[in-house]
Amino acid sequence: DEEIEKWIETLLKRNISLRVNGKDLEIGSEEFKEWVEKFIKEV
């Protein structure tokens, strides 16, 4: 979905790490990609 890709790009540009389930996810890491894929499937 384009919306999500733009959102991810924005996050990448800002180099933010997300806190997911109490863990810091490094943007661009494998864990982050897995989380994004799960997130996309749920939406």
Rank of each mutant, 00 (worst) to 15 (best):
E37Y: 15
S29R: 03
F39P: 00
D1E: 10
E5N: 12
W35C: 08
R14N: 11
L18K: 01
L11I: 07
D24R: 10
E42L: 14
F32R: 00
F32I: 03
E37F: 15
K13V: 08
K33M: 11
N21Q: 08
K38V: 07
V20P: 02
I4Q: 02
N15Q: 12
E5H: 12
I27T: 06
L11Q: 01
I4D: 02
I40D: 00
V43K: 07
E5G: 07
G28M: 09
G22P: 02
I16W: 01
E34G: 09
E37K: 15
V20A: 04
I27P: 11
W35N: 00
E9G: 05
K41Q: 08
D24K: 13
E37D: 08
I8T: 01
E34P: 02
E2I: 10
S17I: 11
K38Q: 10
T10E: 13
V43D: 03
E34T: 14
V20E: 02
L18M: 05
D1F: 13
V36W: 09
N21S: 05
E37M: 15
E26D: 11
L12I: 08
E30F: 11
E37L: 15
E31W: 09
F32Q: 00
G28F: 11
T10C: 15
L11Y: 05
V36D: 00
W35K: 01
S29H: 03
V43H: 10
R14I: 12
E31P: 03
E5T: 10
E42G: 10
G28Q: 03
W7K: 02
V43Y: 15
E26H: 08
V36H: 01
L12F: 07
W7C: 14
N15R: 15
E42A: 13
I4G: 02
D24S: 08
E2C: 14
L18H: 01
E9A: 10
G28I: 04
L25F: 10
E2Q: 13
D1A: 12
G28R: 04
E3S: 12
E30S: 08
W7P: 00
I8N: 00
V43I: 13
N15C: 15
E26A: 10
L12V: 08
N21W: 06
K13G: 08
E2K: 13
E9P: 00
N15Y: 15
E2N: 10
I16G: 10
I27W: 07
K13T: 05
K23G: 02
F39H: 04
K6D: 08
E9V: 09
N21A: 04
I40P: 00
D1M: 13
F32L: 05
